[in-house]
């Protein structure tokens, strides 16, 4: 290869997110689940020790996964392997980069390590995905170097209501920027607490400068079809697959619904006789709201 080859460029980092569009990224806790995910058509897996619903149930401090389990999963599948670092925990991220993971999720599902600062993601060759509940939060993460944004939803609940709220909020705020006069963008940037150049870019393009995916509460094919129609470009499914009655069928059905989200006949077909989805939580009764983590 030529000496002029460049790794870790913004194009290369955002490019992998582009490749994942229209796909399903599945949480897996062991190589067996990773294999099921790949066989079902997942575009990537998120390797973690406990799915969010178990983290929610168990309590305690949730940290980066044991490198051994991440490596076992890397050895099992050919698709990209992602892993989570705590918000602001750049040393965990350094470890994940050293392990050659394909994407790092700086995630509110784990217990935050820094209450003011997120990781400086420009300092890494490996790309990062971060969660957001609104446009300002998304643009702050992009300013820090995130190459993919996922709407947060409320992880581990099996309840799509927060995912819908966050997606709608981000898209409403983008539409507001598109209708604003150029002279109004300064004040709008201040309201969003986001850098002006990114606000101007979004006003011009009508979308984020990086892919927008959806996470947190997707647990049926219909949920996937819903969030894709609301503008998500791909979905993360955490507890929704391996906490359902028949994970193999659920995984495959959510993959089909994500591709054919505009065709209700296909979504109806794959939704038929799936068995029970994960039990789920009413979000109003939750003690811990993971989506509130992140600054």
């Amino acid at each position: 290869m030529s000496n002029s080859a460049q790794t870790g460029s913004t194009l290369v980092k955002r490019g992998l997110a582009d490749m994942l569009r229209g796909g399903v990224i599945m949480d897996v806790v062991n190589p067996e689940q990773a294999k099921i995910a790949e066989d079902s058509g997942a575009v990537a897996v998120m390797a973690l020790e406990r799915v969010p619903s178990d983290i929610r149930r168990d309590g305690g401090v949730a940290r980066m996964s044991d490198p051994q389990m991440i490596q076992e999963i890397q050895a099992t599948v050919t698709i990209p392997v992602m892993a989570k670092a705590r918000i602001g925990h750049f040393a965990e991220a350094q470890i994940l980069q050293a392990l050659d993971v394909d994407y790092i999720d700086e995630s509110e599902v784990l217990t935050p390590a820094d209450e003011a600062n997120h990781i400086d993601k420009w300092a890494f060759t490996v790309p990062f995905v971060c969660g957001a509940t609104n446009l300002g939060e998304a643009l702050r993460r992009i300013a820090e170097g995130a190459c993919m944004i996922r709407s947060k939803g409320e992880a581990g609940t099996g309840n799509v209501v927060e995912a819908v709220r966050h997606l709608r909020t981000i898209n409403q705020q983008i539409r507001r920027l598109q209708t604003a006069d150029a002279s109004e963008l300064y004040a709008l940037a201040k309201d969003l607490q986001a850098p002006l150049p990114l606000v101007q870019e979004v006003a011009e393009r009508g979308e984020l400068p990086v892919p927008l995916f959806c996470a947190g509460g997707i647990s049926t094919p219909a949920d996937a079809a819903l969030v894709l129609q609301l503008g998500a470009q791909a979905v993360f499914v955490g507890s929704g697959i391996f906490k359902s009655q028949d994970p193999v069928r659920m995984a495959s059905a959510i993959v089909e619904a994500t591709t054919h989200y505009q065709d209700a006949k296909v979504v109806a077909k794959v939704s038929t006789g799936l068995g029970e989805a994960m039990k789920g939580w009413e979000t109003a009764t939750l003690e811990t709201r993971l989506a509130e983590r992140g600054w």
């Binding site: 290869m1 460049q6 790794t7 290369v12 992998l16 490749m19 980069q97 050659d100 394909d102 994407y103």
Partner: peptide, 30 residues
């Protein structure tokens, strides 16, 4: 060979010479 140049961290851009076209900035991702 799938991922024959390595995992994402090894993904790269490099100029290549394309027959009948000339120099082209090629982006390789996994």
């Amino acid at each position: 060979r799938r991922n024959g140049y390595g995992r994402q961290i090894a993904s790269f851009e490099v100029p290549v010479s394309v027959s009948g076209i000339g120099e082209y900035e090629a982006v390789f991702i996994r």
